Structure formats: C-alpha cells, structure tokens
Simulated scan of single mutants.
Amino acid sequence: MRYIVVALLAALGTGAALVYDIARPHVHPIKVADQRKMAERQSQLLAARALTVAPPAIARPTGLFGTADVVDGDTLIIGGVTADLWTIDAPELEQYCERGSTRWPCGQDSRRLLQSLVKGRRVACRPEGPPEPDGRFVGLCFVRDTPCGQDNACESDLTSLNLAMVEHGAAMDIEGQYMDAQADAREQKIGIWRGRLEPP
C-alpha cells in the first residue's frame, strides 16, 4: 500500500507534495514552546532534588552510664543526656493528689522515691522502644556499677528503676508492661493510689 501512495505522489508531482504538506498535522508554535518550558522546568526540579541534602539523622545513644541526676519521677540526666524511663509516667513535679479533702504533693513524692532508689550511685540505661522524634533517650535504667552490655543483667527489667517506680506506686504503667505490679500497688493503696489523681 505504501508503494502505491509513493507512486501516486511521484506521478502527480509537486502539487501532490504540496497537498500532503498541507494535510500533515501541525503543532502550534505556542504549544511547542510550552512543552519545551515544561521539560526545562522538570529538569530543573530533578536537579534541585538531587542537590538537596537530607538533614542528618539524630544519633541515638546505644546506652547511658554514669551518675544520675533525678529530674522528676520518670526522668534522669546521665552525662548530660536526658533519659526518660520507658513505659511509665510519674506525676509532674508540681502535681498534687487528693484523698477526700486531703491533698499531698505526689509529684514531689515520686521524685524523692526515685532519688532514694538511685542514692547517688551510678546508673546504666539501655534504649527501649522506638526513638523519639526529638532525639530524647527512652530506656530501661538500672542501678549498676558497670554499663549495660557487659553481662546479661540489663536483658531483664525485673531489677529496673522503671518497674520499681510502678511497684512503689510512684508511677503509672502506660503501655501494659507492668500491669501486675500496678494492680498490686493499687490494691495496697500505696503511693499515688492512696487517693485520686489526674493522669500525669
């Protein structure tokens, strides 16, 4: 079929070529320019993305060890790093609990208990749970003479400060990790469970 069309065009001469040229679809020059601009814009965007440097990831400490300063009932500072005790929440420092008409500073009580558990000794913490977006350290912490990782003592949280705070009724279990210990503290009505409190 193609050979027949070519033969006809050859037979008809330049007039047929002119007809073919007129019949061939044309793209408007403005549309061509727009397509060229869009292609250039896409190239610029791709180049800009390639040059964009991702912000550096916040390094998460693999562990903490040293003398601990107690901030409140669930927060320590070790070597300048703030460590939140994983899966527990203690009353805020200024928070009060109530029993009938009696109010007491349960936030201060929780802090004093954690201070008595630490007693100026060294504390070792290992990270636990997903990293915090702001880089804060969250983990299990133990009163120890050596860092976590030198033996298997940090593998179990049975001797952790986290569990001890819940057992003494000085903090709430917020992830179901220490449900039994919390139930025992509530049954004994010790610490924050002596009365009523708003969740920290």
Score class of each variant (00 low, 15 high):
V166I: 12
R60L: 08
V166C: 01
G176I: 05
I78E: 04
P55M: 07
P55A: 13
I58K: 15
L161S: 03
G195D: 08
L117K: 13
D74Y: 02
S101K: 12
R112I: 13
G129N: 02
V32L: 14
P105T: 11
L117S: 06
K37Y: 05
Q177L: 00
H168T: 11
G191M: 07
A170N: 09
E94M: 00
Q108W: 06
G169H: 09
R194W: 03
A68M: 05
I22K: 12
S160C: 04
K119P: 00
G195E: 07
R41Y: 07
D74Q: 03
G80V: 09
R111T: 01
R196L: 05
H28I: 10
L8V: 15
M165I: 04
G63Q: 15
M172F: 10
L76E: 02
A17T: 06
V19P: 04
D34C: 04
R99E: 13
A181C: 11
F65T: 03
G80W: 06
A16E: 05
A11E: 07
L140Y: 04
L163G: 00
V71L: 06
A47S: 14
A23Q: 13
D180V: 13
A33R: 15
E40I: 11
V53Y: 03
E187D: 12
G191C: 09
L12I: 02
V27L: 06
T82C: 03
H168D: 12
A57R: 15
E40T: 00
K37S: 13
